[in-house]
């Protein structure tokens, strides 16, 4: 047996310094540039494990909603009032359902998985020991979820078009709008998840007292203006309503002034930017203790 060679035939010299690996300076250089992508790549790979549920929520949800709202509730609304905002009820509600579904899937992706990365599997700590930085890990996580949202919104939109619920001409813009709204809600949520130390019962509170009221009161099913003023604020502060208004504008031409468009877009972009900054800060704090 030669020195340094294992009985199983493995050359230990090659294991430690094969000369095939990039030098550490080159490794660091690559990671400076692409570290955020490595995290996104890993997170997207992990989604393979539950791609059926992603596909289900993107395809089955619109199918069920269109059947229930369009054919069921829609028939009733249209026959009694002739539609909403000058369009059939299905046309009115479809953009809202798309945005709401995407926003709500951000809750699944950015609550327990983020807390678990610190607390249960501790995978973020494994990442922090690599050449990547905590801020790259944070950005990669958000990016991967953003990619999922675009994919989910695109599938949802295809189903809506196939069912004749939206006119495809401009409505494809809803894909980007829904993903933006989803991340505008998801990024601040991720920053909060990154601070939790216990078992995450806070998340069921968020589900009950933030997500559900937002779904019901943010103008998804009816124009916000039909609500009394003391309830309208729920819509004003929720990314879901701002996204839905923009989605309706591109889907069936809901009349919005330039100022309104800027306000809706600005609200979502600012929320997203603040969310990203806080997520980066909280990941860095927790991984650098």
């Amino acid at each position: 047996m030669t020195e340094g060679v294992d009985p199983v035939g493995l050359d230990f010299n090659a294991l430690a310094y094969s000369g095939r690996a990039l030098g550490s300076a080159r490794q660091a250089q690559n990671v400076h540039r692409w570290g955020w992508w490595y995290q996104a790549e890993w997170r997207l790979l992990g989604m393979k494990a539950y791609w059926t549920s992603i596909l289900g929520s993107a395809v089955l949800t619109p199918l069920l909603y269109v059947l229930a709202m369009g054919i069921g509730l829609g028939a009733l609304v249209d026959s009694s009032s002739g539609g909403v905002e000058g369009v059939p009820y299905l046309t009115f509600v479809a953009p809202g359902l798309l945005v709401a579904t995407v926003v709500m899937s951000s809750v699944n992706e950015l609550t327990f998985p983020v807390m678990g990365g610190f607390k249960w599997q501790k995978l973020y700590f494994a990442r922090a020991a690599t050449a990547a930085t905590p801020s790259q890990v944070a950005v990669g996580e958000l990016l991967a979820v953003g990619v999922r949202m675009v994919a989910e919104a695109a599938l949802f939109w295809v189903v809506l078009v196939a069912l004749g619920a939206v006119d495809p001409r401009w409505s494809w813009l809803m894909i980007g709008i829904a993903a933006l709204a989803g991340m505008a809600f998801g990024a601040p949520l991720a920053s909060y998840s990154a601070t939790l130390e216990d078992e995450g019962f806070e998340f069921s509170m968020i589900q009950r007292f933030v997500v559900m009221p937002m779904f019901l009161f943010a103008g998804t099913f009816y124009p916000l203006a039909t609500m009394p003023l003391y309830l309208q604020w729920i819509g004003w502060i929720s990314p879901m309503w701002h996204g839905t208004q923009l989605a309706r504008a591109v889907a069936f031409g809901l009349p919005l002034t330039n100022g309104e468009v800027a306000m809706h877009l600005g609200f979502l972009v600012i929320l997203l930017a603040v969310g990203i900054a806080l997520t980066v800060r909280n990941f860095t704090r927790r991984l650098n203790r």
Partner: peptide, 9 residues
């Protein structure tokens, strides 16, 4: 393999 990605390999 996935861990190695985080070293830019």
């Amino acid at each position: 393999i996935m861990y190695g990605r985080y070293f830019g390999l």
